[in-house]
Design a protein around this nucleic acid. Structure first.
Lengths: 190, 190, 190, 190
DNA sequence: GATGAATGAGATTTCATTCAT
DNA sequence: TATGAATGAAATCTCATTCAT
């Protein structure tokens, strides 16, 4: 017996991500995916019930990965500002190093592929970010404004930065990143 | 391709915008559009050569509208900060009041519908925003950082805010908006 | 405007019937149907939502036609036996002259294409036959046995006769038909 | 193709029969069969060369079984009428107790699965029934009509009866069966 | 022999576009 | 110009069969 290969899921995921950046979510067929992944079309349906299923599964995986990367090295017992910087840089790093995943998630968000359930789960995953802001507010280092609003502000700034740098072709230098962090901190600090 | 009836073009555009929010760009067929617009499928081809053509035309229209709205009431002879605030509020207002247009543009950006030429033109339209930041830097009111970076930072923060408020269903109060402007200004001011 | 052609439904129906006799219900693809009907595959979906839909619609049409033919020339004011003979001959004639329709219905009955609703409607259409037997029982010409049982008996005998004559290639002569009617009448008469 | 394990063949046959009643012959995949039989898809191909092979083998088995059951207890030295009744009741019993087999055979008859050869063999198996009628005619107990026609008449009546009773959900009582035999006998007796 | 993942040909269905009215 | 039926290429998905384990 040939056991269902766990690597194949990953292989399919990789193929989708590569294709999304190339052709966009809407211009991507199951045929494209199988060709890119080096397997038969039928095999896709061994691993995923349908195209929708595949997209949703990948979306969930990316989402989880994104959170995991973001909090790598975060230790709540450390002082706030350096901790916050670590997470901030992680978020940025994730988007830069996994640009494909990031673009994929952005594209998915307004697409008919993502079900309400998947969207809901994604929202729940943002809880740790929310908590991080809260902690800053408790320590009176961050403005006592609506937490969600602050969170959006920060993430939005990072997102746009990544997009802009990618599409303009200008790589983000260490200096630029450092400057942007300052802008961000200046915005939210008390 | 020269539309006799300008109202019908607008009618088609409206239909597309309504559908994009509902089903996303990829899940939107010419049949859907004609049904939503209350006309026959064939009629779409009287006004637009193809689906690509239609999407690109609407994208251009939205882009232009976005800039026009953003600089409404802007007078370069007025002092900087209130002028900046006017534009900032205009941008926010545009995205809130024309959420459909905003989502449509976002979706287009990574789609295979938008040609390189259209994308290029869109970029050119951001010149006035760029100039606005430059002026602030000249007047030494805004940090002397990479201009594009500052611009991205500002726009990104606004974008995310709008999305978040729309999807969470929480309306942005005057106070929240005012607070967010402060965050933004704190970030970029010298 | 080109109005939806009512003849095309009939054209498609005819194609299906021809194919069912040739290849059976299960070996019949939408491609086969469109080719046989002389139209494009897509056109089938202008007239029917799905293959299931098409099969169910044709089944209903055949069923209705079958009943209509069976009671042609039946006048309840005429004496019973000749009336009964008329209907009996009509039933036989329908199966012989519309052998394709008959085979199609037989094939459908146990197929997953036919929905419970369609099956139910088909059953309701057998009411006139039921009434005909009842009348014979009231007039004390037909045995006072379970009516459904008598009906099944009669129809079953006719069905098998038609199948047998078709597959053996022996045509039913007037004499044979007349003989079979006698068998039938001998069976059910009081 | 020589099955080592005869039990497994039977297991597969049983699975097919169960599925035919549930989903019909055309809606039955090799995957369905293996799942229902509790074995792997590949294993089916150890016992049968192909789907066609499997269906044809089962068809032949059913056909043989049907004849064997029908003539159980038949002794040509016994007087005719009770002998005929025995066979008649056997035929009915077979269809009632092996409804799945019966439905399967009916479905096969018009399907592209059954080859001409299989069909021919099936026909040959009806010889004993034919002889039984012949004997009745020789003994001048049964009408001297075309033998095939009489045979069709009898079998058709039984078939329909079984179908009707099965689909209406009404069980055939001993009385009803006895009555139906009378109908049949009245039809064919001299 | 038994397994079930892998295959790819082929089935169903969709949809941008054309065309007759 | 407006219509919507007709088209057929291409998309999604199924399934009999094979094959590595």
């Amino acid at each position: 017996m040939k056991p269902k290969d766990d690597k194949k899921s990953a292989q399919i995921f990789k193929a989708v991500l590569r294709l999304v950046v190339q052709k966009g979510l809407s211009g991507m067929t199951m045929g494209d995916i199988s060709r890119e992944a080096g397997i038969a079309t039928g095999t896709l349906y061994v691993y995923f019930r349908s195209k929708d299923d595949l997209i949703n599964a990948l979306f969930a995986a990316c989402r989880e990965n994104s959170v995991q990367v973001s909090f790598k090295g975060y230790d709540p017992r450390q002082p706030y500002k350096p901790s916050f910087r670590t997470v901030w840089l992680n978020i940025l790093r994730y988007r830069l190093q996994n640009f494909e995943e990031y673009v994929f998630q952005e594209q998915c968000y307004h697409s008919p592929f993502i079900t309400a359930a998947t969207r809901e789960k994604a929202l729940q995953l943002s809880a740790p970010f929310y908590e991080l802001i809260k902690r800053g507010q408790k320590e009176e280092l961050i403005k006592n404004t609506d937490t969600m609003l602050l969170l959006s502000f920060i993430l939005g700034a990072i997102n746009e930065l990544v997009k802009q740098s990618h599409y303009s072709g200008v790589t983000l230098t260490r200096t630029k990143i450092s400057t942007t962090f300052s802008l961000c901190w200046d915005a939210i600090k008390t």
